[in-house]
């Protein structure tokens, strides 16, 4: 989803397209939970109250987002979530008559409202990273279709530089075969057997790094993700030169 498209989707959803709204929510779920966790300064799960507050705030953001305001949607979402959470904490403190400092739910310390304000500032400083966040969210969604979660990828990642370089070459070869790529896109699976028949790679190598290879392929098939591609291709380029 590119910037323009996002705005379009949001307006669609705001106009009453429930399906698009569902899509948007599913797409931004990791972001919402991450933002909530960051504001609360602790790990938040979907069963926490703050998470549902964040989700409500996101829902409101869809309804009230105005693309003419030249503000990015992500930033807007962040603002709304933060504001709602602060309101929520204020209410809590009023009830407990302890201003500004809110005890955390897990009892490990306090959340200072000023800290929350401060984190907002740091967030705005790093707004350039918004594209990157968007890319990560999209990658996450695509990988989900291939039944891959980010936390699994460490196990499939090559540990040595030469292996990484070899895998880059493998992916390059795979992209040559258009029929294989089409199958990959359609079936959401890596056509290992066909690929091995056409090339001389060992099955063991492919199986060991299967999910990492899929991730690399997905990244290659989405050249519009500039920032992410940089991470993956950067190392390959370094190796290609040397």
């Amino acid at each position: 989803m590119q910037e323009l498209e996002i705005a379009d989707y949001v307006t669609l959803a705001a106009e009453g397209d429930e399906l698009t709204r569902e899509k948007l929510i599913r797409h931004y779920r990791p972001y919402i939970i991450n933002v909530v966790g960051q504001i609360c300064k602790r790990y938040v799960t979907w069963s926490d109250e703050e998470a549902s507050l964040g989700l409500l705030a996101f829902n409101r953001a869809i309804d009230t987002y105005d693309k003419k305001e030249r503000k990015s949607f992500l930033n807007y979402v962040y603002l709304l979530i933060k504001r709602d959470l602060i309101d929520f904490y204020r209410k809590e403190t009023k009830m407990q008559h302890v201003p500004l400092v809110i005890p955390k739910k897990d009892g490990t310390g306090n959340v200072n409202v000023y800290d929350v304000e401060k984190s907002m500032d740091t967030y705005q400083q790093s707004m350039e990273e918004e594209d990157l966040v968007e890319e990560i969210l999209e990658l996450n969604e695509v990988l989900h279709q291939y039944d891959i979660a980010f936390e699994e990828l460490e196990r499939y990642s090559p540990k040595h530089r030469d292996t990484r370089y070899m895998l880059q070459q493998l992916v390059g070869e795979f992209l040559v075969y258009q029929d294989l790529v089409a199958e990959f896109k359609q079936k959401k699976q890596l056509p290992v057997t066909l690929f091995l028949k056409r090339t001389g790679y060992k099955r063991k190598t492919v199986e060991r790094h299967r999910k990492y290879i899929v991730t690399l392929l997905v990244l290659k098939l989405h050249p519009e993700w500039n920032r992410l591609s940089e991470y993956v291709e950067g190392s390959a380029r370094k190796w290609g030169k040397s």
Binding site: Y31, N34, Q38, C40, Y43, E129, Y231, E233, G234, S235
Partner: peptide
Amino acid sequence: LCSDGQFKNVPRAKNDVPRIG
């Protein structure tokens, strides 16, 4: 996602919730 292209799971401190990206 490391700069050399590999993924790495690093242990998280209790109150450390970094932003995505």
